[in-house]
Design a protein around this nucleic acid. Structure first.
Lengths: 137, 137
DNA sequence: GTATCTGCAAAACATTTGCAATTCT
DNA sequence: AGAATTGCAAATGTTTTGCAGATAC
């Protein structure tokens, strides 16, 4: 909890109650949530919370580079506080988004020789092992 | 033009005028357009065209697997009739989306051992060589 | 003549914006 | 008090839906 406050401060963000709770949610859940998911859970703890604040706060986190968006499904933006380069796998059955390690393959792509690459995004869709095992029954 | 009609028929799509024109647009432009881009250009040729028809038609193409969506920017779905596995590069300056070849690296990803992978998506963002050269002046 | 296709208008969502009220120091 | 933050209500933008009229076979 204190490390969350420190992390916010270190990145130039005043640690208001809402901001602390939202960042805490991202870090502890690690579930790549939508705004809806964050709102629905936190409104129990903070009854006056509005979605506007969730949007404002997440946009602030992105501006300050302590979070980023994951775009896998059109019309469903998800958020992640895990900032190292990594990929994702979305299970089409249960909807879970898994983090996956990806190596840095940028240099191998010949067609991008003279291009300046700022971001690399990799994701897969399919069915996760848990859902595959359920289907065996 | 005739090959477009043939392609539509072969995939179980009745080749109406609108469908032919929209598919022709995808194939000849190869520009990964938004609905807006398709609509704005084709409404010149087909003055009664509606965006609903563009949406309906693209959704039909996707259902019949002769097109797919590219999701790079949230709130901006793009469409592609190039069906082989490939990646994309989006230039943040000029907005152009380039196709890039990617090798099939799926088997190398250990953490996905027991997962069933149905789709692989790779894209980059940065600045393309044309825009980089303009900046030298 | 019956099926399908098209396109308008309205609805459904997700996200942003304007602004007034609240909070913090 | 003054500045920043919050949250409501309205606006915006994208995509879908319902349905009536047009088109095609």
């Amino acid at each position: 909890m204190n490390d969350v406050i420190g992390h916010l401060k270190k990145n130039g963000i005043k640690p208001s109650f809402q901001r602390i709770k939202i960042f805490e949610y991202l870090v502890t859940k690690e579930n790549h949530p939508t705004v809806e998911m964050i709102y629905k859970e936190l409104v129990n703890e903070i009854p006056t919370l509005s979605k506007t604040t969730v949007y404002n706060t997440l946009n602030l986190f992105i501006e300050k580079k302590i979070a980023h968006t994951i775009v896998i499904e059109e019309n469903e933006t998800r958020y992640d506080s895990h900032m190292e380069v990594h990929g994702h796998f979305k299970c089409e059955k249960c909807g879970t988004i898994y983090d996956i390690k990806i190596d840095d393959k940028i240099s191998e792509i010949k067609s991008l020789d003279k291009f300046q690459i700022d971001e690399q995004h990799v994701y897969y869709k399919g069915i996760c092992d848990k859902c595959l095992q359920k289907n065996l029954n």
